[in-house]
Design a protein around this nucleic acid. Structure first.
Length: 319
DNA sequence: ACCTGTCAAGTCTGG
DNA sequence: CCAGACTTGACAGGT
């Protein structure tokens, strides 16, 4: 089984390369000239895209072909006071540059809209904004010229004291989405509410690929092993042109088991990878550790010492 | 250069 | 019904 590793949004090694610079709503309001304020927002977004490019160069130099974009590339987009603002004309060229580089080096990229995107919500206003947020992520991927292999990953959402009803609502709202928005969604089990089993059942029902987070599963499960669920999880990817993806992180501490620690425990990951290795051709593993790319490099050093692990390049192993 | 409180968005808990 | 926690990188305002 070929295993590729990737990391999320920012590097702790490349300095001054944040792809998530922003402006607060308060400081936007303080600028008298609205046009000037908008130009400032657009310059920040352009800088975020330029830093994204720099990170991709860094990834390329280290054979890293799996990467998640920051979802904060365009500051304040979607905010009430920026109604009517279309940042894309100004940013299209830069988005295309990012996308061209991704395609040239055959990278796998994604987004993870944050927890304000909630398709299980009973509130019409929240649903409306969630759909707008998904459309925004679609627009960014389209501006990059990336096809449906570039996805955005979300959670089911809140339970509102009634999980079955909430899943029902999620399904109904999901089905109401436009086809092109829908086709890029992946669903991930979360660490508090919807377990891997519940998420998997939803994915199967909707034909959506599932991103299994093995740390979330460790803190929030229905008593079954992640390895037992794997054949079905893997199967949700069978219609996709990309390998299944999982997320890994390690508990911050006993006191805070849901928190993410600086680095990833190689034994915890191997405990999942080894049993599935024979029945899985390829898998992509997104590392969600505080030390970002440094955690990836540390994991590679740790794995190199393990029996049955063959290092293919700086971010890929065979097991 | 460094420190601290604050920040668009949602949900859940507890008062 | 409302305040605060959750979580996180970065701003904003201060020294």
């Amino acid at each position: 089984m070929i295993v590729r590793f990737g990391y999320v949004a920012m590097s702790v090694i490349v300095k001054n390369a944040s792809p998530s610079k922003t402006m607060t709503a308060t400081s936007f309001k303080k600028i008298e000239d609205r046009e000037a304020a908008i130009r400032k927002l657009e310059r920040i977004a352009e800088e975020n895209l330029q830093n994204t490019l720099r990170l991709l160069y860094h990834n390329r130099a280290h054979d890293i072909s799996l990467y998640r974009f920051s979802s904060k590339l365009i500051p304040l987009i979607g905010h009430e006071m920026l109604k009517g603002w279309d940042p894309f004309p100004f940013l299209n060229e830069k988005f295309k540059e990012v996308g061209d580089y991704v395609k040239l080096h055959k990278m796998r990229v994604s987004f993870h809209p944050d927890h304000f995107t909630v398709l299980s919500t009973p509130r019409a206003e929240v649903l409306k904004n969630s759909i707008l947020d998904l459309q925004k992520h679609l627009s960014m991927l389209e501006a990059m010229g990336l096809d449906e292999r570039a996805k955005y990953n979300i959670h089911i959402g809140g339970s509102y004291a009634n999980k079955p009803k909430s899943i029902e609502r999620f399904i109904k709202n999901f089905k109401g989405l436009e086809e092109n928005v829908k086709r890029r969604i992946t669903l991930e089990n979360d660490d508090k509410t919807f377990t891997a089993k519940e998420t998997l059942e939803t994915c199967e029902q909707l034909s959506v690929p599932m991103v299994l987070d093995i740390h979330h599963h460790w803190v929030n499960n229905d008593g079954e092993e992640a390895v037992e669920l794997w054949p079905r999880v893997k199967n949700t990817w069978s219609e996709q042109d990309i390998p299944p993806k999982i997320h890994v992180s390690s508990p911050k501490s006993e006191k805070d088991p849901r928190g993410h620690s600086d680095y990833v425990d190689p034994q915890f990951l191997l405990g999942f990878l080894r049993p599935i290795a024979n029945k899985t051709g390829q898998i992509d593993v997104m590392i969600e550790a505080k030390k970002k790319d440094d955690a990836l490099f540390q994991l590679m050093r740790d794995l190199k010492e393990e029996d049955g692990v063959k290092v293919i390049n700086q971010s890929t192993i065979e097991i």
